[in-house]
Structure formats: C-alpha cells, structure tokens
Amino acid sequence: MASHLGKSPPWWQNRRLVPWLVQGSVGLLLLVVIAFLLGNLVRNLSAAGLLLSWRWLGQPASFDIAETLLPFNASEPYWRGLLAGLVNTLRVVGLGFVGATLVGTLVGSASFSRNGLVKRLARIYVELIRNIPLLLQLVFWYFVVFLALPNGAAAIQLPGIVLAKSGLFLPGFEAGFQWSGPTLVDGVWQAPLRFTPEFGALLTGLVVYTGAFIAEVVRGGIAAVPKGQWEAATSLGLGPLLSLRRIIIPQALRVIVPGLNTQYISLAKNSSLAVACGYTDLYSVAETSLNQTGRAIEVIVILLAAYLAIDLVISLVMNGLNRLVQIKER
C-alpha cells in the first residue's frame, strides 16, 4: 500500500503543472504573434523609409495657434505646439466636467420632480440630445448658434458681459489690478476675459451632450435607492429637496460614480471633435503637424498615448472616488 501511495501521478495529470503549461504555451504563442507583427511593422516601415524618428519634434513648427493658455508662436518647436494643444484640450475637458456634471445632476434630479412640466422637459431634453450625433450638434452650435450672433456695436450687451460673433467677453482684472469690463475699440470688442466662439461652441456641445447621459446615470442612481428610504425620510418630516440631498443622493452615489466614470472618459475622448468647430485642440495641432512633417505614425502614437493618459488619469481618480462612496459595511 505504501508503495502505491508514494507513487506520484504522471506529469500530465499534475493539477498544478498542467494549467501552468497550458497558460505558458498560450502566452508564448501570443508573444510570438506579437513579435511577428511588430517585426513585420518595423520591416515594412524601414522598407518604406518611415522608421520612427522623433527629431522633428525639436524643429520649429512654423504654424500659429489661435488661442492658447500656453504662449506659443510659429518659431517654437513642434513639441511646444503639441503641448499647447494638450493644454487646450485639458481646458475644455476640465470645464466640460464641471458643466456636464451640473447639467446632468440637475436634469437627472428633475426627472423625479412632482411638477409634471419639469419632469417632461427633463425627459424631452435627454431623449432629444442623446439621439443626435455629437458631431452634428457641434456643427449646429458653431455655425447656427454662435456664428449667427451679431457683431460690433450690435452685439448682445448685458452689464459687464458682451456676447458677440467674435466671442464672449467678461470683465476681470487688467494689468495693475484694475477691474474693467468689455470695451468696443475700433469696432472690435476687447475685454480682460475672453472666450472664442470656437471654444464656446465646443464646450456647449460637450456639456449639453454629456449632460444628457449623466442625467440618465443620475436618474438610474436615484431610482436604485429603495422607495422605503423616501418614505422613511418623509415620515421624519424632511421635505423633498432635503431628503434628496441628505438621504437619497449619498446612497445613490455608489451607483452613479461608476457610470459617471464612463461619461467623463467619453467626454474627454469626444473633445477631439473640436476640429469640427475650428477649436485648436491636441488633435488639431497633431493633424497639422502630421501634414507638415509626414510623420504619420509618430504623430498617431503621440495622440494615442496622450488620450490614453488622460483617460487613465480620469479612471484612476474616479475609482478612488468610487471607493470613498461605497457603503462601509460594519
């Protein structure tokens, strides 16, 4: 008996070794395929004289960018231009998050309103906006709404604010910390704070579009909170707004945050549609660089890496937030 017990099973029946071997060989096969594809790419690229080269990044870009947070002119190198484009992208994405979250929360909560009109309007907004392609909406906002605004003295003027074809002009501190509003100089509006219609159209389009999706995420989150919680809140004498804020939203957040993550990521990616309304974002600068240098693969690699990095950072932050809002089991 002892000899029978001591005899180990053959290796192909080893419960540890076999899965390991299978995984290993599949992994090896995958590596070989990837190596083959990469080798193929490199071979073909070198045959076509297109092997990756990054030297062009240091050469003068010799194109201009209309509006930049980062100062840029045509004599600066390509990498500065791409960086300026990235900053422009982050600018619209950052403001887009704030706007879309506000719109989404408002509309999502409104769909639980006891006021029939508010409820219907919220539904109409969501169904109308999310069923029209974003590209069409951006073209609409830019060419039909923003470029239809009057210019010069005929511009829409509110105290301290001017909305004209050439942009939105806001008051602010000028050099020397002097508060000043928009002024009309030689038929052209000047102001300390200015948003171009290109930026305005893109931001509006992204906020309105993503807002509709976030509204649905918020609605789903609130609907996921059991009805008994509402009733309990009401029985404690809390009004609808207060019970929403103190009882419902904190519980809804754990459902909302993962969905919000997806919407934020798609907003960041959708910002690359900026070219449709003439805003110079990362994609637009990259496209110009690609055309002027012919380094298609390098530029695409930079674009891929940049958008991937942006989206990974968003995911990271949102996953952290997700952990915070989960119900702590005691």
Binding site: F63, A66, L147, N151, V275, G278, T280, S284
Partner: peptide, 18 residues
C-alpha cells in the same frame, strides 16, 4: 488663424463673418 478641416467649413465660417 482659424483652422478648419475642410474647405466647406473654412468658407462657411468666412461667409458667416467669423
């Protein structure tokens, strides 16, 4: 410089007075 991807957009923006 206001840059557009297509000629149609470029001339549309010009005709709109942008």
């Amino acid at each position: 410089p206001l840059k557009f991807q297509t000629g149609d957009q470029t001339y549309a923006a010009y005709l709109q007075g942008r």
